[in-house]
Design a binder for these strands. Structure first.
Lengths: 349, 349
DNA sequence: AGCGGTTGCTGAACGGGGTAAGTAGATTTC
DNA sequence: GAAATCTACTTACCCCGTTCAGCAACCGCT
């Protein structure tokens, strides 16, 4: 019967530094110096230690290391959005993949919590993780107005990086996106195609980046003599369908609609199909987030594309810098690129 | 300047049991008994300890606890699929959410690694995590033929649960799906609608569950006098588009197609649109996995629906049992339900 | 008074690493 | 030739929570 079958009742003995020391007849300290590349051991001894460690399949106990070194080499991430959104929206997975690539490259790990849309739980999780010394830092996604998470991490001294809209006056490192610039790309694209009345199915206004997008769209539109009508919806298909329906069936419907996410844009496509409105002949659609999904539907969606895995990599890198004690930085992520596909075309005459 | 700004250079002092003991003028041991609900302390003392602990914001150091208790209360999960697939396929997020709900309920955490399709990396990760005492168990997704991960976890004594096709003769707990039963649902549905020639765009045959599906489809079809043609493709949109094109443009094209995943089914929809083949009037589509995506496209897809979060919850529960030393079980997950939507209809005359 | 039993606590060791301080022995320096 | 300096180690203690053995003080019982 294997150890796996009996679980903890027959725990597998894993080698420790003490085992190596005993095997070679030297002290634990010498083994430690040898394994960590520290001076103070003869080259020959070091070699024998490394050999035996390899042979015994030795790995440093993360607990022991954390206990003495006070670093866990673990980064925390809480995904707090309504469950159905998390599972539909591919942003999180793409971001996660980027974060992970940096972490695993440096031998760090990611502690993940998936919770519903309960800000209190999110805060409690950070506090507990930090209190229990489980993590060395956290990535904060989706900045909100007067975000209480910023106060929390500053108060308890938890290194963090804030990913969100343009941020002012917070003492932690931030990644911000130029939503105005991105808005300009969309409006320009649609204006070039002759559209003069643009609908905007926006995500919840509690998020800093959503407000920034609305501002950006208004300004860009004003500069080009275009009108923008914003309607707000949750980041879900059904809510977006409903919002799109309101836009397209109202008085003076827009000839183009911008959606706050790929999932919302897909909802829009469904509504257009249901109403018998052809895309892009009668209405043009643009998604404010690109993913494989936008290419999986017909017509393929014109979308603002940004390198989300790169965003995740950047977040991880900045966080590791913060953990290492670097002064907080404020970094602008590379601007999006507008990928024109089949869902946007000339405005109807 | 806050501690967060200076990172490790000014580490936040977090309270320890020693602090509580000193503050109350009692021993560390008494504090430990009080905090853990152990006998050996007077009720009044216990109360004072808990009060002070609360006041100081004390949390047990997970490292110290793991070091003496030899449990980390952490479960590992490696997602190893091509990056673009992980980010498109919503299965993983839904599964993850289910796993997480059980873990967080019991105060456990999830250590996540996202890697490309490199089985060797996956194995190395398990070995390292276990060697470093970072985890108490792992969830193995997507069983393959002669899966080397099973040998590994049995050899090193790492508690695990295997999620995959029907499994025989492995010594670790397994969750298996009755793919034959599910296949029967699909074939029956299509046969009832008059289809006599069914296409099957299947995922890679290296996965146990994919082979089981093919077998199940063949048997169910034979029993009902229906023909099945299987073509294999990777779990991606483009590959599925291509496979669908081969099926629909070949000699004697099928009147219905079953797809191995929701993403593949969306690829099929695009191909049908591109070829001008109407769904469901000219060809019916069924997806062998349901998600929000299937309702986001037009037409909405008929799909085999299973409760993926519940699957994740079950996996977590079984793993925690295994960690606790329970004998390995083999559990069948509840069968899928066929949700008929707009993409399947009567066979064309 | 003497005995066993319970209650409520303390001291010490342990787990597995890291590291400052100390110490032989060999080598260099003046 | 004595002193200073290296080299290659060892000893000892730290991190923090758990746990075992020990020990007074107090209880009721004979």
């Amino acid at each position: 019967m294997s150890a796996a079958q009996t679980g903890t009742s027959e725990p597998a003995r894993r080698a420790t530094m003490g085992d190596i020391a005993r095997h070679l007849g030297i002290s634990k300290a010498a083994v430690s110096y040898a394994l960590n590349g520290q001076p103070g051991v003869a080259a020959a001894t070091r070699e024998r230690v490394l050999e035996v460690a390899q042979e015994m399949g030795w790995h440093a106990s993360s607990s022991a290391r954390a206990l003495s070194g006070s670093q866990t080499q673990v980064v925390g991430l809480v995904l707090s959005r309504p469950p159905d959104l998390l599972t539909t929206e591919t942003f999180f997975m793409r971001f996660l993949a980027g974060v992970e690539s940096v972490l695993s490259e440096r031998g760090w790990s990611l502690l993940l919590r998936v919770i519903g849309d309960h800000p209190a739980d999110e805060m409690a999780t950070y506090e507990r993780w930090w209190g229990e010394r489980r993590i060395d830092g956290v990535i904060l996604l989706d900045e909100r107005y007067r975000d209480p998470r910023v106060d929390l991490v500053e108060r308890i001294g938890l290194p963090a990086v804030l990913c969100g809209g343009p941020v002012k006056g917070v003492g932690i490192p931030c990644l911000w996106t130029d939503q105005s610039g991105d808005a300009g790309l969309v409006v320009q694209h649609l204006a070039d195609l002759g559209h003069r009345r643009i609908g905007h199915v926006a995500g919840p206004g509690e998020f800093v980046h959503e407000r920034a997008r609305r501002r950006g769209l208004r300004r860009a539109a004003a500069a080009l003599g275009v009108e923008v009508v914003t309607v707000e919806a949750a980041y879900t298909g059904p809510e977006s369908e409903e919002a799109t329906r309101r836009l397209l069936t109202g008085d003076a419907p827009p000839t183009a609609v911008v959606f706050g996410s790929d999932v919302m844009a897909l909802g829009g496509v469904r509504t257009a199909a249901a109403l018998g409105v052809r895309v892009p002949q009668e209405v043009s659609f643009v998604s404010w987030d690109d993913s494989q999904l936008t290419s999986l539907v017909a017509p393929r969606l014109t979308a603002l594309q940004r390198d989300t895995p790169a965003f995740g990599r950047l977040a991880a890198t900045v966080l590791l810098d913060a953990v290492a004690g670097r002064r907080p930085v404020r970094i602008q992520v590379p601007p999006s690129v507008l990928v024109a596909r089949e869902s946007s075309g000339p405005a109807p005459a």
